[in-house]
Amino acid sequence: MKNAIEIVNLTKSYGDNTVFSGLTLSIPKGKTTCIMAPSGTGKTTLLRILMGLEECDSGSVTGLQDMKKSAVFQEDRLCENLSASANIRLVRRKSVHRQEKKEREEVRKAMEAAGLSGCENQPVRELSGGMRRRVALLRALYAEWDVLFLDEPFKGLDKEMKEKIMEYTKKSCEGKTVLFVTHEEEEALRMGEIYRLGESQ
């Protein structure tokens, strides 16, 4: 396995609108890379291509083969009727009913750390925006992954909670490959190495 995800000459456009052209970037494995750019400059599109949800017009991406992916999307993308705990447990490849007490305990502890104690059995449709965001983040961290895509994961959290969750995420991602997209400099500085989209395309 290569020690980096290589993006070479990547081009993507929607009709006449070119999102990025000739984008070349090397994402080191085992580290957190923060992609910073103003809104509407193709950060999410880049993540979608890397996640395999969209095709690029030209160029190549190597080093992602056989890597288990996990993500926090721009939207929470939770199953509204499932409980918070069930939403998190859903992403383990093992059947949810075969998950043992130990695994349930793991989820309970993670929820406690994220300030979601007591919400385990509550359907997510009843949770606030900030709580839902935290559930989405915990789900991504709980999955079995080799590479994690974070698309503005701390959006909608108040300052105090953001601090706490950022610290928790950073700790959970130590030594792992993370691609973090944001337009907030402070978040990027805290999380890892910064790459500014558009500067060296």
Binding site: M51, G52, K68, K69, A71, E75, R77, A143, F149
Partner: peptide, 10 residues
């Protein structure tokens, strides 16, 4: 969007 989520998490 939920189906995409399921796809990414395999």
């Amino acid at each position: 969007k939920l189906l995409e989520m399921a796809e990414v998490f395999d």
